[in-house]
Design a protein around this nucleic acid. Structure first.
Lengths: 152, 152
DNA sequence: ATATATTAGTTGCGCCTGAAACTATATTTT
DNA sequence: AAAATATAGTTTCAGGCGCAACTAATATAT
C-alpha cells in the first residue's frame, strides 16, 4: 500500500497556505484598524462605491449570512458603512461606505496590496503565472468564479 | 485610483478555495467516521506506522498545540491511537495508531484520495501541473515545506 | 383575496479554537 | 548543586462561527 502523505495532499496544503497567509494579513489590519476578516470582506466589497445588499455580499464572498450580518452591524456601529432600507423590498438594505469608511479603506488598501505584492515577489514570474492559472482552474472547477450578476 | 477587487485578491481566493474544499472533505469523513479535521490530521500523520510526538505533529501540520492535544485525547479515548511515555523524556509521549486505528485509516484513505482525485480530474493536465507548481512555490516562499527532520 | 411558501436579515445556542496560564520535567546558568 | 530558564503537553477561558429557529416582508398558488 502506497504511503499516504498528508503534506502532499491538496486539501491540506491549501488549508495550511490559506491559514498562514490569512493570519498574517488579518493581524496586519486587526492591529491598526481593529477590523476582522468578515468586516474586511464587507469593506472591500463595498470599496468600489456601489451599494450592495447583505445577500449579495454573502453570495460574492461565500461567507455565512450570520457572519456577514454581524460584520455589517459592527461596521455600522462604527459609522463606517450606512444601511438604507430598499424602497422596493423593506426586508433588504442597500449598504455602502460612509465618508469615514472610504477614508479608512484608503488607508487599508495600500497595506493589503503591499502584503500581496510582497508575497508574490517571492515567486518567479513563471511561478506566479502558474499559481494564477492553477487557482483560476480550481475556482472554475468549483464554480467559485466571480458572478457579477449577483450584485444588487 | 484602481478599483480594488476582493475576488481577485490572492489571500481571499486561497481562503475561499480552502474553505470550500475542506468543508466538502470534512463532511465526508465526519459523517462516516465521526472524525474532525484535527483528528484527521493526527490519523493521517500517524498513518505511516511511525511514532510521532504531539510536538512533531504540531510542527508538521502547523496546527495549534492545544488543538492537537484535544484531538489526541479524543482519538485515544476511542482506542484509535496509543500513547507511550517517552523513556528519555517523561513529558513527551510517542503516539501511534492502534490496530483499530489502522483499520479505520484503511477505510478512510480511499475516501479522501478519491475526493482529491475527483477534484483534480476537473482540471486539465496542464492546469493540474500549474496548480502544483504554484502551490509548491508559495509553500517554499513561506517555508512551509515538509521538514522531515522535525519528526519525533 | 387568502393561504402557503419563500426570502432578507437577525439572534440564541452550542461548539471549536487560540491565547495564556499552568503542571511537570529537562536543560542551562551560575 | 541550586536556581533560573525552557520545553511537552493540558486546561481554562473568552471570542467567533455556523446551524437552526425566528421575524418581517414578499411572492406564489389556490
Amino acid at each position: 500500500m502506497a504511503d499516504f502523505a498528508l503534506t502532499h495532499f491538496l486539501p491540506f496544503r491549501l488549508n495550511r497556505l490559506a491559514a498562514e497567509i490569512s493570519e498574517g494579513l488579518a493581524t496586519l489590519y486587526a492591529e491598526r484598524f481593529d477590523i476582522d476578516i468578515p468586516q474586511w470582506r464587507v469593506l472591500a466589497t463595498l470599496s468600489s462605491g456601489e451599494t450592495w445588499t447583505a445577500k449579495a455580499i454573502v453570495a460574492s464572498t461565500r461567507t455565512h449570512k450570520s457572519t456577514i450580518s454581524r460584520a455589517v452591524e459592527a461596521l455600522s456601529r462604527r459609522g463606517l458603512i450606512e444601511s438604507i432600507q430598499a424602497p422596493d423590498d423593506k426586508r433588504a438594505f442597500h449598504l455602502r461606505l460612509t465618508a469615514a469608511g472610504r477614508r479608512l479603506f484608503r488607508q487599508l488598501e495600500p497595506l493589503v496590496l503591499d502584503y500581496e505584492r510582497d508575497l508574490l515577489a517571492r515567486l518567479s514570474e513563471s511561478e506566479g503565472r502558474a499559481l494564477a492559472r492553477g487557482i483560476g482552474a480550481l475556482e472554475k472547477a468549483l464554480k467559485l468564479e466571480e458572478r457579477r450578476d449577483e450584485a444588487v
